[in-house]
Design a binder for these strands. Structure first.
Length: 425
RNA sequence: GGAGGGAUGGCAGAGCGGUUUAAUGCACCGGUCUUGAAAACCGGCGUAGGCUAAUACCUACCCAGGGUUCGAAUCCCUGUCCCUCCGCCA
C-alpha cells in the first residue's frame, strides 16, 4: 500500500511514477473520494462528540435524582443520524481501501524504464558456460534414465506440473536445500525458521498477494479460509505484522526451506516439459526487515547472499535489474539471478530479490521504535530466493553432465551426499 | 470430540452500565539530589485519524465482527486465539 499522505498530497507525482510501470491511476476518482471522506468524517465525529457529551449529562442528572425524560427526548434522533453518517463513511472507506490496495508500489529511481522483460538490464555475468564435446541432454533425459526423475508417475499421482524424484536425485535435491539453508544460517547471518505451509488471508494481504492475485494461489476447501503458501516470503514477512520491534533487534534476517505452491494460472503451454515450472517446488527464502535508510544496502547484500550459492556450486549465471514493467506488485527494485541452462542455451531465473520498502509494512502495520523518534516507524521489508531448489537441481544436472549421462556432484554438495562424487556412474 | 475458564497499554493487573482522563505496580524516558552510580523524590510515558502556524481541542481503539442502550471495557450473539481437565492421536 502506498502512503496515504502521498496520495492526498502529491497525487500527480504518484500517477507519473506509476505510469512508468504501465499503471494508469484514476486521480479524479481518488480526489473525489478523498474530499467526500473528509466531509463525512468531520460530520461523523461531530455527531459522536455530541452523543458523548449529552450521554454524560444524562448520567450526571440521573445521579443527582433529576428527571431525565426531557434530556432523553432531546437525543431521540441523534442515534439515527449518527448511524447514517457512520454507514456512509464506512462505505466510502471501503471504496478507498479497494482502490488503494490495488495500487502497485512506486519504482525506485535507479530502476530502468521498460515495458517487458526484454527491457531488463544485465548487471554482470559470472562463470563461463561449458563447451560440451557431446550432445547435451536436458534434465528430463538425464534424470529419467534410471527412473530417478519421473514425471509420468507424478501425473498419475496428481496431474500435470508435478515431479517425483527417487534415489540419488531425491537425495541431491535434499542436499541442495540443506546446503543453501546451512550457508544462509552459518555464513550469512539468517535465523532458520520452520513455518506453516498454509496461511490465512490476512497474511496474504499483508505481503500483497491478496486481494489482487488470488487466482495464482491454491485455496483450501473447508471452514477456514486457508491458502497454500506461494513462497515462504508470506509467513516469514508476516512475522512482523502488527508488531512494533525494538530497533536493537534490527536487521531481522530470516530464512526457511519450504515447498511453494502456485496455480500457474495463465501460463498454459509454457515450460510444460520438465521441472522448470511446477505447481509445487522447494525454495530456500531470505527475508530481511530493516531500518528505512538501510534497505538498499540490504538489497545489495542479499543479492550477494544468493550469488554466493551459485558460485559455490560452480553454476554460471547472470544478474539482471528488472525494468519498471517487469517488476512484481510490491517491489520498488528487483534483481533476478538467472542460471545457465545448456539444454535451452540460455539463462533462466533461479532467484528474485526485491526491496519492498514500506509497501508491505504499511499493509501489515509492521513497525519499529527508535529511541530518537517519538513515533514508531514503518520497517522496510526485503525478500529473495536463496535459491529455488528445483531449478537449481536441474541446473546442476544439466551443467555437470558427462558424455555417458552421469552427473558430477559439485564439491560443495558432497558432504551432504555421503561423499558421493558421481550420480548414474 | 466433550466439559469448563480466559483475552484490558511494553509487561503484570484492577475495573463488570454513567463521577474513567482505563486505577495501581514494574519497565522505560526526563529532572532534583550525588564526585559518579544506586536509592529516594518530582514529572512524563499507547496507537491511529481530524482540526490547527503551533499548543489546545475533538474522534476512534480494552481480541474481531454484530446487537441492546440516551450511554458499553462492562450486558447479549457470532467468530478467532489461548489455558485447564477428559477422550483420541503422529
Amino acid at each position: 500500500m502506498l502512503d496515504p499522505k502521498l496520495l492526498r498530497g502529491d497525487l500527480d507525482q504518484v500517477a507519473q511514477r506509476l505510469a512508468k510501470r504501465g499503471f494508469t491511476l484514476d486521480t479524479a476518482q481518488l480526489e473525489s473520494l478523498e474530499s467526500k471522506r473528509r466531509e463525512l468524517q468531520t460530520q461523523t465525529e461531530q455527531l459522536q462528540s455530541e452523543r458523548n457529551s449529552r450521554s454524560k449529562a444524562i448520567g450526571k442528572a440521573k445521579s443527582e435524582g433529576q428527571d431525565i425524560e426531557p434530556l432523553l427526548a432531546e437525543v431521540s434522533d441523534l442515534g439515527d443520524r449518527l448511524d447514517a453518517a457512520k454507514k456512509a463513511l464506512a462505505t466510502l472507506q471501503e471504496e478507498w481501501e479497494a482502490l488503494t490496495s490495488a495500487l502497485p508500489n512506486l519504482p525506485h529511481d535507479s530502476v530502468p524504464e521498460g515495458a517487458s522483460e526484454d527491457d531488463n538490464v544485465e548487471l554482470h555475468r559470472w562463470g563461463t558456460p561449458r563447451d560440451f564435446d557431446f550432445e547435451v541432454k536436458d534434465h528430463v533425459d538425464l534424470g529419467g534414465k534410471h527412473g530417478y526423475l519421473d514425471f509420468d508417475m507424478a501425473s498419475k499421482l496428481t496431474g500435470s506440473r508435478f515431479a517425483v524424484m527417487r534415489g540419488p536425485i531425491a537425495k541431491l535435491h535434499r542436499a541442495l536445500a540443506q546446503f543453501m539453508l546451512d550457508t544462509q544460517t552459518e555464513a550469512h547471518g539468517y535465523e532458520e525458521c520452520y513455518v506453516p505451509y498454509m496461511v490465512n488471508a490476512d497474511s496474504l494481504t499483508g505481503t500483497g498477494q491478496l486481494p489482487k492475485f488470488g487466482e495464482d494461489l491454491f485455496r483450501l476447501e473447508g471452514d477456514q479460509d486457508y491458502y497454500l503458501i506461494p513462497t515462504a516470503e508470506v509467513p516469514l514477512t508476516n512475522f512482523a505484522r502488527d508488531e512494533i520491534l525494538d530497533y536493537k533487534s534490527l536487521p531481522v534476517r530470516l530464512t526457511a526451506h519450504t515447498p511453494c505452491f502456485r496455480s500457474e494460472a495463465g501460463s498454459h503451454g509454457r515450460d510444460t516439459r520438465g521441472m522448470i515450472r511446477q505447481h509445487q517446488f522447494d525454495k530456500v527464502e531470505m527475508v530481511q526487515m530493516v531500518e528505512p535508510d538501510k534497505s538498499y544496502e540490504a538489497l545489495e547484500e542479499m543479492r550477494g547472499h544468493a550469488e554466493a550459492l551459485l558460485q559455490a556450486l560452480g553454476l554460471p549465471y547472470r544478474v539482471v535489474t528488472l525494468c519498471t514493467g517487469d517488476m512484481g506488485f510490491g517491489a520498488t527494485k528487483t534483481y533476478d539471478l538467472e542460471v545457465w541452462l545448456p539444454s535451452q542455451d540460455t539463462y533462466r531465473e533461479i532467484s528474485s530479490i526485491s526491496n519492498c520498502e514500506d509497501f508491505q509494512a504499511r499493509r501489515m502495520q509492521a513497525r519499529f521504535r527508535h529511541p530518537d523518534q517519538k513515533k514508531p516507524q514503518l520497517l522496510h521489508t526485503l525478500n529473495g530466493s536463496g535459491l529455488a531448489v528445483g531449478r537449481c537441481l536441474l541446473a546442476v544436472l544439466e551443467n555437470n553432465q558427462q558424455a555417458d549421462g552421469s552427473i558430477l556432484v559439485p564439491e560443495a554438495l558432497r558432504p551432504y551426499m555421503g561423499g558421493l562424487e558421481v550420480i548414474n556412474g
